[in-house]
Design a binder for these strands. Structure first.
Lengths: 356, 356
DNA sequence: CTGAAAGCGCTTACAG
DNA sequence: CTGAAAGCGCTTACAG
């Protein structure tokens, strides 16, 4: 099949119509203003007219030009996403959601991923995006904790929203899950299975999410009273490697432990790996549970964890940003709002009742 | 800090300029046609004029409107990316590259990720993108092998390019690395370290990439002559789990093996995990190497592997697609072309000379 | 509820 | 090498 034949097909063109609102108007016997009104869900259109126009659109498989709309409404916006977090999977999901949100809102996403923990790079990257003229920006944990970065962005009139941080913030909008509640539920799951001696690997210090998860754990344990012993707690850093080390400590110090809860999945994978290396079977000898649901399928047995609807978080973030960009451009004040998205406990194979 | 103060800052506005080419023209004392010409790198502009205009642009921190340009040039295009491949990391990198390519070309990326192996979903997803009116599409392995899908897309006049497939194809453009050569080099690395008994985990059957890697392995082994024994070969399926199983087979059947080469990193991770479980130290007792460089940092010791510049592959793919879309819209024939991108051997900690 | 008209910020023949 | 003008496909006051 040669290029030429492809080009012939082009002329056959049952392709996605390149009709414009003018064509629709002609076919429907109305003005293009009216067509535009149904496109923008404008109230003041006679229901019959609307139905008629909609029908024609369907027939022609009309697909409106985003460029034209953006130009006309001045709602064109590039929005940045600087990412500096250990987890690829979290990033990917977030990106997917942000992408969908962008495509719905006519925004253009500009992404830069920095090596985890390299704050200097992250600042540079953010500044360069500002130079490039972005109008909004998603700040994913831990960047959402950088007060100076936030101030700089606000000074440059950039609409930002923090992702993976919640709490009462007055300087920027946030979207996240309820980490406290989720951790609380996970511990209850373990206790419900009969675990009494539980190890906990704390998340990266300084992240509010880590703090909130830890608070949730404590709350559940306290509520369990005598059904649970004092937990064996080790500080982790959200990396696979720190999970390995944490498990090493927990398992060599305390032979009674029957379940380990790691504050994220990467660490849980590390915990599992070390448990295996030490000859423990999961979950028969020890239950291992994580948080995030970002490594499903690349760990075995499959991990019990908390699923964050990360994609939804990303889409919501874009939505909030665009609302604020539009507000600002219209001369109005942006709104600061906190969104909490629902999480889900994913009970899989890595958790089971303790031996005997 | 209340919303109101933010809004006040808005008015201070040292923000990214919202100047138009008209403003630039006025400041530079030329017509906006001329400004536009320098923007489009049009030849026929007096070097002095060009420099002048460029200077003004810099001063004002001018950032042209993509919407206006797209509208004017009719180069607006949504391009789809349907993905159905086990590796998250590969996907992410590809997406990053595609995103950058899109942002450079004014394209809008529409992504859909399907569960790996679910071809039915992948077809549905592709068809729905076609309904939505995309003009181009990236087909990532293994979808780039689906002759029927390709035909359907071409029939709908969609510009496609295959990613992760090479070979002489006449129906679509492709971009990939030289899998044969890379595998060949990896085996040479192992032989160079002194390994004589090598295990190989084949990639998912049916993928040309798997086939090419396997051919490269054979070539290197053949060339090594008596320095290498006949390899122990096991079929894998590109998943972590299949790597676990493969290592189980290889290591229990053949105690002489000192190195295992898995056709991708997910399988290499599985191999490593099983090796550890069986009490082998990596790399002291056994070297483990992979392919793709997609899991750096989440496996330990760090994996020796082949780095694919996946992001670059993604960006190139978008570039090719946009060229073809423009060609088609201009009534010209699209070009079919094959791009091979350079790979790199990443020698890390998981490979070392065999014992004694 | 609906039309006619102006405008969004670019590009690109067409003249000169 | 450069300007004036038309046009890309929408949206949105402004009248009616």
């Amino acid at each position: 099949m040669k290029p030429k034949s492809v080009s012939k097909r082009a002329k056959a063109g049952k392709a996605p119509s390149s009709a414009t609102i003018y064509d629709i108007a002609a076919r429907a016997g109305v003005s293009k203003s009216t067509v535009s009104r149904v496109l923008t869900h404008n109230q003041s259109v006679d229901p019959k007219t609307r139905a008629l126009v909609l029908g024609v659109m369907k027939d022609v498989r009309f697909s409106p030009s985003a460029a034209a709309r953006n130009l006309s409404t001045r709602s064109e916006a590039r929005i940045g996403l600087v990412y500096s977090n250990p987890s690829v999977a979290y990033f990917t999901e977030l990106l997917m959601g942000a992408l969908e949100g962008s495509s719905r809102n006519g925004a253009q996403l500009v992404v830069d991923r920095c090596e985890a923990g390299n704050l200097i790079r992250a600042y540079e990257s953010a500044r360069s995006l500002v130079q490039d003229g972005i109008a909004g920006m998603i700040l994913a944990t831990p960047l959402s904790e950088e007060a100076e970065l936030i101030r700089e962005l606000l000074d440059n009139n950039i609409s930002i929203v923090g992702v993976g941080t919640s709490g009462v913030r007055t300087d920027l909008s946030c979207v996240d899950i309820d980490n406290y509640r989720a951790a609380y539920e996970m511990v209850n799951h373990l206790i419900g299975l009969g675990h009494r001696y539980i190890g906990f690997v704390k998340g990266h210090p300084g992240l509010p999410a880590s703090q909130n998860r830890w608070l949730g754990v404590q709350a559940a344990l306290k509520e369990a009273g005598s059904r649970a012993a004092r937990p064996r707690v080790v500080q982790g850093y959200n990396t696979y490697r720190s999970g390995v080390d944490a498990a090493d400590q927990i398992l060599s110090k305390d032979r009674k432990i029957t379940a380990i809860f790691a504050s994220n999945d990467d660490m849980a994978a590390g915990v599992m790996s070390m448990a295996h290396r030490k000859g423990f079977n999961v979950p028969q000898d020890i239950s291992v549970v994580g948080f995030d649901d970002t490594i499903a399928g690349i760990v075995w047995p499959e991990l019990t964890t908390v699923r964050q609807p990360i994609a939804e978080i990303g889409a919501t973030a874009i939505q909030l940003i665009m609302e604020n960009i539009r507000a600002i451009r219209a001369g109005a004040a942006p709104k600061i709002q906190n969104h909490l998205i629902e999480h889900t406990l994913m009970i899989r194979e890595s958790s089971a009742p303790p031996r005997q």
